[in-house]
Design a binder for these strands. Structure first.
Lengths: 218, 218
DNA sequence: GTCTATAGGCTGATAGAC
DNA sequence: GTCTATCAGCCTATAGAC
């Protein structure tokens, strides 16, 4: 794959780092927008203001750039979600926080929900082995909280995986479809008001905590 | 676009219809699996057991085939969901039925959830003008029911669009990610049991109806 | 590290025989 | 309607100068 630069990145010049960073940032945008096959390395290089050949030099090719981007994106999301780990709050409260943190990630990194969705849709076709752990890590946060809530009796005895799929499905769908939805609304094709993130967060929080609550647990 | 065949389809031979049908069926599979850019017309023709040139003859090209597939897929889903329109059941019960009908569509047409997701992800980049109405139609069913439930006081005063996004997001995510999830579980990489559709349907039904219920309504 | 130029492969579409 | 043969364009990757 990438031969020299990976091993001597500590010696890399300031310009070199700038080139790498520009390719990572622009590549994230374009891969999220168009998918692996739709994204063209020429377009990435051009928008990044960098020579096309630099993708091969720094990342060993299109696939290498994509892998580097997935690693960065998923690792960052995992790290953001980890602030909830081992906290003392109630399972109910932790689930509310989870939704907020997730929304925060999606706001800061708009490409993240789309990348997740594209990967699961294509069955991980372009996902390197090394990325799988941090990808799967994304799906442990809900499970832990739900298991605790069920054990402590504040939640109904729900299946953690189903809970996770329903919750994350809502989140990922809301954020990944945002630009399309807002365009349709702006063009008058979808008769509704553009929903704001805070409102959606509250909606999902209420829906989830009420939906999971054991009767007589409010 | 497609010159003759569209106008004289009523005169088409049996073989011609078989060719068209094979391309539609196989194209649906492959487009859902790989997306518009990932799908190659050569692969579609080969798996369909049909000559590559037939895609251009019958559909005017790759884009034409894709448009025909979207039309068919969305129209069928809309028609299946329409059985719920104007029914006498409670809003609560209608929402439960909605989830069941949606799951039924996804079981019969596994490509449907993926096609919806790929389209919203790419901002409708490959969606023909003519398909937009039937696409938007997909998003009216929940709205009607929720508005009624809120009006009648069985639901909390929730935003119909947010409710729709959360509910359909859960559904589409569950079904579109199914094969990937099941593969990961089978390979032992995701420690969980493969969830069955019926269980997911019940989970979402409970989550939604409890989550939307006005306090002291059940 | 960065650039230009180009090789080499693949893809979608068409021409024309049957 | 269907098939074969083929073309033109695009896209990734590399060789080699600086």
């Amino acid at each position: 794959m990438s031969q020299m630069p990976v091993n001597k990145r500590h010696r890399a010049s300031r310009d070199s780092e700038r080139t790498r960073a520009a390719l990572l940032a622009t590549g994230t945008e374009i891969f999220a927008e168009l998918g692996f096959d739709g994204a063209k390395v020429g377009a990435i290089a051009e928008r990044a203001g960098v020579n096309k050949a630099m993708i091969n030099y720094h990342f060993g090719g299109k696939q290498g750039l994509y892998t580097a981007i997935l690693e960065t994106t998923f690792a960052e999301a995992n790290s953001a979600l980890s602030v909830l780990r081992g906290r003392a709050e109630s399972a109910d409260e932790l689930l509310r926080r989870f939704v907020e943190v997730w929304a925060g990630i999606a706001e800061r990194r708009p490409a993240f929900p789309a990348m997740v969705l594209r990967e699961v849709l294509s069955g991980g076709r372009h996902m390197d082995q090394r990325v799988l752990p941090s990808f799967l890590g994304l799906f442990e946060h809900v499970r832990e909280v739900v298991e605790r809530g069920v054990r402590e009796g504040t939640f109904r005895p729900v299946n953690p995986l189903l809970t996770h799929l329903a919750l994350v499905g809502s989140l990922v769908f809301f954020f990944a479809t945002r630009s399309f939805r807002e365009r349709l609304i702006r063009e008058g094709k979808l008769p509704a008001a553009i929903p704001d993130t805070a409102g959606f967060v509250r909606h999902v929080q209420e829906l989830t905590t009420r939906g999971l609550a054991r009767e007589g647990s409010p």
